[in-house]
Write a protein that binds this DNA or RNA. Structure first.
Length: 859
RNA sequence: GCCCGCUUGAUGGAAUGGUAGACAUAACGGACUUAAAAUCCGUGCGCUUCGGCGGUGCGAGUUCGAGUCUCGCAGCGGGCACCA
């Protein structure tokens, strides 16, 4: 049997190279001052038990970068670990009666095996699991350090309360105002909770965005909007006939003449005071508190208010009395929890005014428009303009008027310029079991007492029961009871645990020194490896995870842990994996594996043969069953094929459609490449044979293509244009396959081209590339082989094809010497018959010559 | 509701403001084969009087020249602080 009849044995080959890389410790990272470091990190997964296609895409992207940078001579750190705390483990415990710790550890083991089958170049010695005490003990210490640094405080905060299950619900567990399991109407409850002062760094977090020049623009914008810096005025309104007054915050002090009402949040202290002897108001406040805690719920709810009967006096308009409402769209957490409403120039205020029949007075008009002609219907005018109907402010621009009013109020001592942020402090308390215990003890006589550092870690007990509703830590027989570190009297442990964003806010630093026991990491290791040079993950983390990590980095710096300004220097946000959806005749979702194509192209349910309805391609999700199991793909086609498919066609930041045909196409390419090297069309000269003195024209052309591909694929990888890199490699593959002549030069150029192809394809198809590298006669591992350098002499062309247009329309092309003089290009273009016939003997009005690109004749 | 993104052949996509559709996928035709698979070769936006004309979601604008820049509109998708 000739080699061309053999088939590529994917499974054996991939397993072989994975074993060799592991034995030779190819991917271990060590600190090394002699080489530039490169830290590439993919967002670590929640250990759900099986990898999904999103993981495959994420880790393939990271691995291509890691392998490429290694070949470019960088000292690469490429670690992996587990974001192991979280709700699903508790849900599994309740549903399947498995302890969360066991469930999580089994999932980690299963997923680790799956990830290893992908051939990812991780330093597995640095693996971390956040649910293990040797990880979370360090964040307990960080919390205590933050506490000492004044970055932690306790305050009352609202949560979603399920009255039937006696548990706090996550926003995602509240569906249409009801608990997802119990179906009970969710209430808001006040609980005493721990907060981290992220707002202390608000300005720095905002300014820091300017330094992140390798982040996607839209993520920077989302962070900027999240921080939400605004400049405005805090202003005190006296209450008519009361000793009391009300302080409001506004970004539109210029519209004070158009004020129609004041509104306070349902949780405003004044509302609470008034409600104490007003049952109707108390009921209204209770209704507000039944709304979800999410911003979307607040914003989309119908604007409602309760007239308190109080009036406030407009400080700018003598004698004007404004009714004071309690309103459901005013947030206690933002500004002062009180606003003045100017219906003509704010949409929410207008909606409110229309509902309660309040006056709408125009005080800003577009430049040059008669204010009398402006009629406000259902849309407020919030654009820039000139002040009208505003006494002394008339004629001023909006920004001048703002400054004038602020100055006036500051002068009168009833207001002050104020910078406000939408950003709120980070509530880190969670009333859940499967999380890192908050290292605090509550003592009846000493109050809230931090656990002394020498008593860390506070270990999460694993012998817990989910039989009773509520937090298992609360009804654990012994865990809660501890002696007060101050007075020694019997006291209670804090049963809340940390938000799981806590763990993911510093894991990137832990990877720098994962074996360190004294602290989370050593300063030397962190300062060597950080910042992460390239971070890769889903866009869904664009705001919270990234912002919390940026905050942690600052807080850790404040506490002397490290000395970097930002955790992630570069960021790549990948798109989602989508797949067609299928529904059975009775309207149930079907897995793609349960659907087959009939001979006539129609879709049928496997087994029953019933017809299947095809739905649009959507994000892969368990609920719609449009998922494909990566494990099955890797078993059937191999890791290289799965990796190639992830990189082909779609740019990484865009959504990717998973198709059967696409994976087949990738598989065909893997086999084609294998055949080309194993059974080339002509015998290859030995490694290192001297190049012939001259090459035939066709061979010379191929060599140019080879070297151009080397140069361009490098550029593509630097810019993460993986799909373009794949396209170029396919072009080179086609070029090599087309080489027909069989003189010495051709054979030499074929070896040169094949070797280049194998080395260039290595970051994407590492197993196949190693195999083919050996096949080509090399003994050194490809993982240790440097990236090739293109021969500059072969990159320049001596002639170029130039497009010729008349009035912007293509009329022909010209082959011109490279960098030909402009007048030569112009003369050649005008001489073209197609150009001459359009000009019809008349001289052109103008000729634009872009050297080596285009000649445009303006007739 | 607010914020953000996307829209190019049958499909995924390519195109420093300069020849729209590279490279793939599906389809179709051919070669090889007893046959199929695999493989290889070819066709491949629409209209056309074969000279061309029209085409990058829709409508305007800037420019010698617009898929690319500007404004407006539509459709689809994502995020919104206790999912991670």
């Amino acid at each position: 049997m000739s080699r061309s009849d053999e088939r590529y044995n994917v499974r054996e080959t991939e397993a072989k190279w994975q074993k060799i890389w592991e034995e030779r410790k190819s991917f271990l990272a060590r600190e090394d001052a002699t080489r530039p470091k490169y830290y590439v990190l993919e967002m670590f997964p929640y250990p759900s038990g099986r990898i999904h296609m999103g993981h495959v895409r994420n880790y393939t992207l990271g691995d291509v970068v890691a392998r490429y940078k290694r070949a470019k001579g960088f000292n690469v750190l490429h670690p992996m670990g587990w974001d192991a705390f979280g709700l699903p483990a508790e849900n599994a415990a309740i549903q399947n009666n498995v302890p969360p710790a066991q469930w999580t550890r089994e999932n980690i083991a299963a997923m680790r095996t799956q990830l290893k089958s992908m051939g990812l170049s991780y330093d597995w010695n640095r693996e971390v699991a956040t649910c293990e005490p040797d990880y979370y003990r360090h964040e307990q210490k960080m919390f205590l350090d933050f506490l000492k640094a004044g970055l932690v405080y306790r305050k009352e905060s609202w949560v979603n309360w399920d009255p039937e299950e006696h548990t706090v619900l996550a926003n995602e567990q509240v569906i249409d105002g009801r608990g997802w399991r119990s179906g009970a109407l969710v209430e808001k409850r006040l609980l005493s909770q721990w907060f981290l002062k992220i707002t202390a760094y608000a300005e720095d977090l905002l300014q820091g965005l300017k330094t992140l020049d390798r982040w996607p623009e839209r993520v920077l914008l989302m962070q900027e909007n999240w921080i939400g810096r605004s400049e405005g005025l805090r202003l005190v309104f006296p209450l008519d006939g009361q000793d009391d007054s009300l302080e409001i915050y506004t970004t539109r002090p210029d519209t004070l003449h158009g004020a129609a009402f004041l509104a306070i949040a349902a949780n405003h202290p004044l509302a609470a005071k008034l409600a104490s002897d007003n049952a109707e108001l108390a009921a209204f406040i209770a209704e507000c508190n039944r709304m979800g805690t999410s911003e979307a719920a607040l914003e989309t709810a119908e604007k409602k208010g309760f007239n308190t009967g109080l009036y406030a006096l407009n400080p700018l308009v003598d004698g004007q009395k404004l009714p004071v409402y309690v309103a459901n769209f005013v947030l206690m957490d933002y500004g002062t929890g009180a606003i003045f409403g100017c219906p003509a120039h704010d949409q929410r205020d207008l909606d409110f005014a229309r509902k309660y029949d309040l006056p709408v007075k125009v005080v800003v008009a577009p430049q040059g428009v008669d204010p009398a002609s402006i009629v406000i219907g259902t849309e407020a005018y919030s654009e820039d303009g000139v002040l009208v109907n505003s006494g002394a402010l008339n004629g001023l621009g909006v920004s001048e008027a703002k400054a004038r009013v602020i100055a006036m109020m500051e002068e009168r001592g009833i207001g002050q310029r104020s910078v406000n942020y939408r950003l709120r402090d980070w509530g880190v308390s969670r009333q859940r079991y499967w999380g890192c215990p908050i290292p605090i003890i509550h003592c009846d006589s000493c109050g809230v007492v931090p656990v002394p550092e020498d008593q860390l870690p506070v270990t999460l007990p694993e012998d817990v029961s989910f039989d009773k509703p509520g937090n298992p830590l609360d009804h654990h027989p012994t865990w809660k009871h501890a002696a007060c570190p101050c007075c020694g009297a019997p006291a209670r442990r804090e049963t809340d645990t940390f938000d799981t964003f806590f763990e993911s806010s510093w894991y990137f630093a832990r990877y720098a020194a994962p074996q360190e026991t004294g602290r989370g990491f050593t300063k030397t290791a962190a300062d060597y490896w950080l910042p992460v040079d390239q971070y890769i993950g889903g866009i869904e983390h664009a705001v919270l995870h990234l912002l919390y990590s940026r905050f942690f980095t600052r807080a850790l710096k404040t506490c002397g842990y490290l000395d970097v300004a930002e955790p992630f220097a570069g960021l790549l946000t990948q798109g989602m994996i989508c797949h067609e959806t299928y529904k059975s005749a009775d309207g149930k979702w079907l897995f793609p594996s349960d659907v087959e194509k009939a001979a006539d192209g129609s879709l049928l349910e496997t087994g029953s043969g019933k017809p299947v309805t095809l739905g649009r391609s959507e994000k892969m999700s368990k609920s719609k069953k449009n998922v494909v199991d990566p494990a099955w793909i890797i078993e059937t086609y191999g890791a290289d094929t799965a990796r190639l498919f992830m990189l082909s066609d779609s740019p990484p930041e865009r959504d990717l459609d998973w198709t059967e045909a696409g994976i087949d196409g990738a598989f065909r390419y893997v086999n084609r490449l294998w055949r080309m090297v194993v059974a080339p069309q002509m015998p290859l000269p030995p490694i290192g044979s001297p190049a012939p003195a001259a090459f035939a024209a066709a061979v010379e052309k191929l060599r140019r293509q080879t070297h151009k591909t080397i140069a361009l694929v490098g550029e593509d990888l630097e810019r993460f244009h993986f799909n373009k890199a794949v396209a170029r490699l396919r072009e080179l593959t086609n070029g090599l396959a087309d080489l027909k002549s069989d003189d010495d030069g051709a054979a030499w150029a074929l070896r040169e081209g094949l070797e280049a192809l194998v080395v260039l394809v290595n970051p994407m198809l590492p197993h196949l590339a190693e195999e083919l590298w050996t096949e080509l006669g090399h003994t050194e591992l490809l993982v240790n082989t440097p990236w090739p350098v293109a021969d500059a002499a072969l990159l320049t062309e001596d002639s170029v094809t130039v497009a010729v247009q008349v009035n912007g329309k293509l009329r022909g092309t010209l082959d011109l010497p490279k960098d030909a003089p402009q007048d030569q290009a112009q003369a050649a273009a005008l001489a073209l018959p197609a150009v001459a016939s359009v000009l019809n003997g008349k001289p052109p009005r103008k000729v634009i010559v872009v050297p080596n690109r285009i000649v445009n004749v303006v007739a």
